[in-house]
Protein backbone atom coordinates (compact mmCIF):
# COMPACT_ATOMS: atom_id res chain seq x y z
CA UNK A 1 0.00 0.00 0.00
CA UNK A 2 2.68 2.42 1.09
CA UNK A 3 4.55 1.51 -2.02
CA UNK A 4 1.75 2.42 -4.42
CA UNK A 5 1.04 5.64 -2.51
CA UNK A 6 4.60 6.79 -2.88
CA UNK A 7 4.52 5.76 -6.53
CA UNK A 8 1.42 7.93 -7.13
CA UNK A 9 3.08 10.74 -5.24
CA UNK A 10 6.20 10.51 -7.33
CA UNK A 11 4.12 10.40 -10.54
CA UNK A 12 2.22 13.42 -9.33
CA UNK A 13 5.37 15.33 -8.42
CA UNK A 14 7.07 14.38 -11.67
CA UNK A 15 3.96 15.59 -13.49
CA UNK A 16 4.28 18.84 -11.56
CA UNK A 17 7.94 19.13 -12.56
CA UNK A 18 7.13 18.47 -16.22
CA UNK A 19 4.33 21.00 -16.05
CA UNK A 20 6.58 23.66 -14.54
CA UNK A 21 9.31 22.93 -17.11
CA UNK A 22 6.80 23.24 -19.93
CA UNK A 23 5.37 26.40 -18.42
CA UNK A 24 8.82 27.98 -18.20
CA UNK A 25 9.48 26.93 -21.77
CA UNK A 26 6.22 28.43 -22.99
CA UNK A 27 7.03 31.72 -21.25
CA UNK A 28 10.49 31.92 -22.85
CA UNK A 29 9.03 31.06 -26.26
CA UNK A 30 6.37 33.75 -25.90
CA UNK A 31 8.97 36.31 -24.77
CA UNK A 32 11.32 35.59 -27.65
CA UNK A 33 8.46 35.81 -30.15
CA UNK A 34 7.43 39.09 -28.52
CA UNK A 35 11.01 40.40 -28.84
CA UNK A 36 11.06 39.52 -32.54
CA UNK A 37 7.69 41.16 -33.12
CA UNK A 38 8.96 44.25 -31.28
CA UNK A 39 12.09 44.45 -33.44
CA UNK A 40 10.11 44.07 -36.67
CA UNK A 41 7.48 46.59 -35.56
CA UNK A 42 10.24 49.07 -34.83
CA UNK A 43 11.50 48.81 -38.41
CA UNK A 44 7.93 49.14 -39.70
CA UNK A 45 7.30 52.11 -37.40
CA UNK A 46 10.40 54.01 -38.54
CA UNK A 47 9.86 53.29 -42.24
CA UNK A 48 6.14 54.03 -41.95
CA UNK A 49 6.81 57.36 -40.25
CA UNK A 50 9.34 58.28 -42.93
CA UNK A 51 6.91 57.40 -45.73
CA UNK A 52 4.01 59.15 -44.03
CA UNK A 53 5.85 62.40 -43.29
CA UNK A 54 8.32 62.39 -46.18
CA UNK A 55 6.19 61.26 -49.09
CA UNK A 56 3.90 64.29 -49.12
CA UNK A 57 6.92 66.59 -49.37
CA UNK A 58 8.42 64.81 -52.39
CA UNK A 59 8.28 66.99 -55.50
CA UNK A 60 10.32 67.89 -58.55
CA UNK A 61 11.54 71.11 -56.92
CA UNK A 62 13.26 68.95 -54.29
CA UNK A 63 15.77 67.94 -56.97
CA UNK A 64 16.00 71.27 -58.82
CA UNK A 65 16.07 73.97 -56.10
CA UNK A 66 18.69 74.60 -53.43
CA UNK A 67 18.17 74.72 -49.67
CA UNK A 68 16.17 77.87 -48.92
CA UNK A 69 16.31 80.46 -46.16
CA UNK A 70 13.49 79.83 -43.66
CA UNK A 71 10.07 80.82 -44.94
CA UNK A 72 10.65 80.45 -48.67
CA UNK A 73 10.29 77.58 -51.09
CA UNK A 74 13.25 75.41 -51.90
CA UNK A 75 14.65 71.94 -52.37
CA UNK A 76 17.66 69.82 -51.59
CA UNK A 77 19.53 69.93 -54.92
CA UNK A 78 22.76 71.34 -53.49
CA UNK A 79 22.73 68.77 -50.68
CA UNK A 80 22.05 65.88 -53.07
CA UNK A 81 24.90 66.96 -55.37
CA UNK A 82 27.17 67.42 -52.36
CA UNK A 83 26.32 64.00 -50.94
CA UNK A 84 26.96 62.29 -54.28
CA UNK A 85 30.31 64.07 -54.69
CA UNK A 86 31.60 63.55 -51.15
CA UNK A 87 30.44 59.93 -50.96
CA UNK A 88 31.66 59.17 -54.48
CA UNK A 89 35.14 60.58 -53.95
CA UNK A 90 35.32 58.97 -50.50
CA UNK A 91 34.60 55.55 -51.99
CA UNK A 92 37.03 56.15 -54.89
CA UNK A 93 39.76 56.78 -52.32
CA UNK A 94 38.85 53.84 -50.11
CA UNK A 95 38.23 51.12 -52.72
CA UNK A 96 41.71 50.65 -54.24
CA UNK A 97 43.45 51.09 -50.88
CA UNK A 98 41.04 48.73 -49.13
CA UNK A 99 41.25 46.04 -51.80
CA UNK A 100 45.05 46.11 -51.87
CA UNK A 101 45.28 46.05 -48.08
CA UNK A 102 42.86 43.10 -47.94
CA UNK A 103 44.92 41.43 -50.68
CA UNK A 104 48.06 41.77 -48.60
CA UNK A 105 46.38 40.15 -45.60
CA UNK A 106 45.42 37.02 -47.57
CA UNK A 107 47.77 36.70 -50.57
CA UNK A 108 51.02 37.93 -49.03
CA UNK A 109 50.87 37.94 -45.26
CA UNK A 110 48.57 35.01 -44.51
CA UNK A 111 49.48 33.57 -41.12
CA UNK A 112 52.16 36.17 -40.36
CA UNK A 113 52.05 38.18 -37.14
CA UNK A 114 51.97 41.45 -39.08
CA UNK A 115 48.84 40.34 -40.95
CA UNK A 116 47.19 39.16 -37.72
CA UNK A 117 47.86 42.52 -36.05
CA UNK A 118 46.60 44.49 -39.05
CA UNK A 119 43.50 42.32 -39.22
CA UNK A 120 42.79 42.93 -35.53
CA UNK A 121 43.31 46.68 -35.79
CA UNK A 122 41.14 46.77 -38.90
CA UNK A 123 38.34 44.96 -37.07
CA UNK A 124 38.58 47.56 -34.32
CA UNK A 125 38.37 50.35 -36.89
CA UNK A 126 35.21 48.79 -38.37
CA UNK A 127 33.42 49.40 -35.07
CA UNK A 128 35.14 52.69 -34.24
CA UNK A 129 32.82 55.66 -33.64
CA UNK A 130 32.65 57.76 -36.80
CA UNK A 131 32.81 61.00 -34.82
CA UNK A 132 36.38 60.13 -33.80
CA UNK A 133 37.36 59.80 -37.46
CA UNK A 134 35.82 63.26 -37.95
CA UNK A 135 38.01 64.68 -35.17
CA UNK A 136 41.08 63.02 -36.70
CA UNK A 137 40.47 64.49 -40.16
CA UNK A 138 39.77 67.87 -38.58
CA UNK A 139 43.12 67.75 -36.80
CA UNK A 140 45.06 66.50 -39.81
CA UNK A 141 43.44 68.40 -42.68
CA UNK A 142 41.00 71.13 -41.61
CA UNK A 143 43.10 72.68 -38.83
CA UNK A 144 46.37 73.00 -40.82
CA UNK A 145 44.49 74.39 -43.85
CA UNK A 146 42.42 76.75 -41.69
CA UNK A 147 39.16 76.07 -43.52
CA UNK A 148 36.48 73.41 -43.83
CA UNK A 149 36.40 71.64 -47.18
CA UNK A 150 34.56 68.93 -49.08
CA UNK A 151 37.94 67.21 -49.60
CA UNK A 152 38.23 66.75 -45.85
CA UNK A 153 34.68 65.34 -45.79
CA UNK A 154 35.44 62.89 -48.61
CA UNK A 155 38.62 61.73 -46.87
CA UNK A 156 36.76 61.26 -43.57
CA UNK A 157 34.12 59.12 -45.31
CA UNK A 158 36.88 57.25 -47.14
CA UNK A 159 38.53 56.38 -43.81
CA UNK A 160 35.21 55.05 -42.53
CA UNK A 161 34.68 52.96 -45.68
CA UNK A 162 38.25 51.62 -45.74
CA UNK A 163 38.07 49.01 -42.94
CA UNK A 164 34.74 47.70 -44.28
CA UNK A 165 36.30 47.11 -47.72
CA UNK A 166 39.46 45.56 -46.20
CA UNK A 167 37.31 43.22 -44.16
CA UNK A 168 35.10 41.98 -47.01
CA UNK A 169 38.03 41.69 -49.46
CA UNK A 170 39.92 39.60 -46.91
CA UNK A 171 36.89 37.40 -46.18
CA UNK A 172 36.16 36.84 -49.86
CA UNK A 173 39.76 36.13 -50.92
CA UNK A 174 39.96 33.61 -48.12
CA UNK A 175 37.12 31.66 -49.76
CA UNK A 176 39.05 31.31 -53.04
CA UNK A 177 40.42 27.74 -53.13
CA UNK A 178 44.22 27.45 -53.22
CA UNK A 179 43.96 24.88 -56.01
CA UNK A 180 42.87 27.67 -58.37
CA UNK A 181 45.93 29.75 -57.47
CA UNK A 182 48.25 26.76 -57.79
CA UNK A 183 46.86 25.94 -61.22
CA UNK A 184 47.68 29.46 -62.37
CA UNK A 185 51.18 29.31 -60.86
CA UNK A 186 51.74 26.01 -62.64
CA UNK A 187 51.07 27.79 -65.92
CA UNK A 188 53.93 30.13 -65.07
CA UNK A 189 51.91 33.22 -64.21
CA UNK A 190 53.63 35.74 -61.92
CA UNK A 191 52.05 36.28 -58.51
CA UNK A 192 50.40 39.60 -59.31
CA UNK A 193 48.78 38.09 -62.41
CA UNK A 194 47.50 35.18 -60.35
CA UNK A 195 45.95 37.58 -57.86
CA UNK A 196 44.36 39.84 -60.46
CA UNK A 197 43.23 37.22 -62.96
CA UNK A 198 42.35 34.33 -60.63
CA UNK A 199 41.74 35.49 -57.06
CA UNK A 200 40.01 38.77 -57.87
CA UNK A 201 37.88 37.18 -60.55
CA UNK A 202 36.77 34.39 -58.22
CA UNK A 203 36.03 36.81 -55.37
CA UNK A 204 34.58 39.58 -57.51
CA UNK A 205 30.95 39.37 -56.40
CA UNK A 206 31.82 39.34 -52.73
CA UNK A 207 34.20 42.25 -53.08
CA UNK A 208 31.54 44.20 -54.96
CA UNK A 209 29.14 43.50 -52.09
CA UNK A 210 31.68 44.97 -49.69
CA UNK A 211 32.06 48.14 -51.72
CA UNK A 212 28.28 48.56 -52.04
CA UNK A 213 27.82 48.05 -48.28
CA UNK A 214 30.55 50.60 -47.64
CA UNK A 215 28.75 53.11 -49.90
CA UNK A 216 25.51 52.44 -48.01
CA UNK A 217 27.27 52.94 -44.68
CA UNK A 218 29.02 56.22 -45.51
CA UNK A 219 26.19 57.85 -47.42
CA UNK A 220 24.22 58.19 -44.19
CA UNK A 221 27.16 59.32 -42.05
CA UNK A 222 26.63 62.71 -40.45
CA UNK A 223 28.95 63.15 -37.50
CA UNK A 224 32.28 63.16 -39.38
CA UNK A 225 30.96 65.69 -41.92
CA UNK A 226 30.05 68.21 -39.20
CA UNK A 227 33.75 68.98 -38.61
CA UNK A 228 35.01 68.54 -42.14
CA UNK A 229 32.69 69.41 -45.05
CA UNK A 230 30.45 71.48 -42.76
CA UNK A 231 27.56 72.75 -44.92
CA UNK A 232 26.90 75.36 -47.55
CA UNK A 233 23.61 77.11 -48.35
CA UNK A 234 24.66 77.47 -52.00
CA UNK A 235 25.33 74.97 -54.76
CA UNK A 236 28.98 74.21 -55.33
CA UNK A 237 31.11 71.54 -56.92
CA UNK A 238 34.33 73.06 -55.61
CA UNK A 239 35.83 70.37 -53.42
CA UNK A 240 38.04 72.85 -51.56
CA UNK A 241 35.09 74.81 -50.17
CA UNK A 242 32.54 73.76 -47.55
CA UNK A 243 29.76 71.71 -49.16
CA UNK A 244 26.21 70.79 -48.19
CA UNK A 245 25.33 67.12 -47.83
CA UNK A 246 22.00 65.42 -47.21
CA UNK A 247 22.76 64.14 -43.68
CA UNK A 248 24.10 67.48 -42.42
CA UNK A 249 21.17 69.38 -43.96
CA UNK A 250 18.78 66.91 -42.30
CA UNK A 251 20.55 67.51 -38.98
CA UNK A 252 20.39 71.29 -39.28
CA UNK A 253 16.83 71.44 -40.61
CA UNK A 254 15.23 68.82 -38.34
CA UNK A 255 16.51 70.64 -35.26
CA UNK A 256 15.21 74.00 -36.50
CA UNK A 257 11.93 75.56 -35.37
CA UNK A 258 10.72 76.23 -38.95
CA UNK A 259 8.00 73.94 -40.34
CA UNK A 260 9.17 74.17 -43.96
CA UNK A 261 12.76 73.29 -42.95
CA UNK A 262 11.46 70.34 -40.95
CA UNK A 263 9.47 69.18 -44.00
CA UNK A 264 12.60 69.32 -46.13
CA UNK A 265 14.41 67.30 -43.46
CA UNK A 266 11.73 64.60 -43.67
CA UNK A 267 12.00 64.53 -47.46
CA UNK A 268 15.79 64.21 -47.18
CA UNK A 269 15.44 61.49 -44.55
CA UNK A 270 13.10 59.54 -46.83
CA UNK A 271 15.49 59.87 -49.78
CA UNK A 272 18.55 58.80 -47.86
CA UNK A 273 16.95 55.91 -45.96
CA UNK A 274 15.40 54.33 -49.01
CA UNK A 275 18.55 54.70 -51.10
CA UNK A 276 20.61 53.16 -48.29
CA UNK A 277 18.17 50.28 -47.82
CA UNK A 278 17.94 49.69 -51.59
CA UNK A 279 21.75 49.62 -51.84
CA UNK A 280 21.85 47.13 -48.97
CA UNK A 281 19.36 44.83 -50.63
CA UNK A 282 21.20 45.03 -53.97
CA UNK A 283 24.49 44.33 -52.19
CA UNK A 284 22.99 41.27 -50.50
CA UNK A 285 21.79 39.90 -53.83
CA UNK A 286 25.40 40.02 -55.07
CA UNK A 287 26.77 38.30 -51.99
CA UNK A 288 27.91 34.72 -52.58
CA UNK A 289 25.57 32.14 -51.13
CA UNK A 290 28.19 30.41 -48.96
CA UNK A 291 28.62 32.04 -45.57
CA UNK A 292 32.01 32.14 -43.95
Amino acid sequence: MANSASATASVRSSNAIVRSRLRKNAIIRALSIAATVAGLSLLAWILGDLLFKGFSTLSVSLFTMDTPPPGSAGGLANAIIGSLLITGIGILIATPIGILAGTFLIEYGRGSTLAEVIRFVNDMLVSAPSIIIGLFVYQVIVAPMHHFSAWAGAIALGIIALPIIVRTTQDMLQLVPDALREAAYALGAPKWRVIVVVSYRAAFQGMLTGVLLAIARISGETAPLLFTALSNPGRTTDMSSPMASLPVVIYNFAGSPYADWQNLAWAGALLITFSVLTLNIIARSFAPKTRN
Binding site: D49, K53, A254, A269, L277, N280
Partner: peptide, 19 residues
Protein backbone atom coordinates in the same frame (compact mmCIF):
# COMPACT_ATOMS: atom_id res chain seq x y z
CA UNK B 1 14.71 42.79 -41.73
CA UNK B 2 16.78 42.87 -38.53
CA UNK B 3 19.92 43.62 -40.55
CA UNK B 4 18.13 46.44 -42.37
CA UNK B 5 17.50 47.93 -38.95
CA UNK B 6 21.30 48.19 -38.68
CA UNK B 7 21.51 49.85 -42.09
CA UNK B 8 19.19 52.75 -41.21
CA UNK B 9 21.52 55.77 -40.75
CA UNK B 10 21.88 57.01 -37.20
CA UNK B 11 20.61 60.49 -38.06
CA UNK B 12 17.29 58.90 -39.03
CA UNK B 13 17.06 57.30 -35.59
CA UNK B 14 17.76 60.69 -34.04
CA UNK B 15 15.15 62.48 -36.10
CA UNK B 16 12.57 59.76 -35.57
CA UNK B 17 13.37 59.84 -31.86
CA UNK B 18 12.85 63.58 -31.67
CA UNK B 19 9.57 63.66 -33.59
Amino acid sequence: AVELLAAVPSIIYGMWGLF
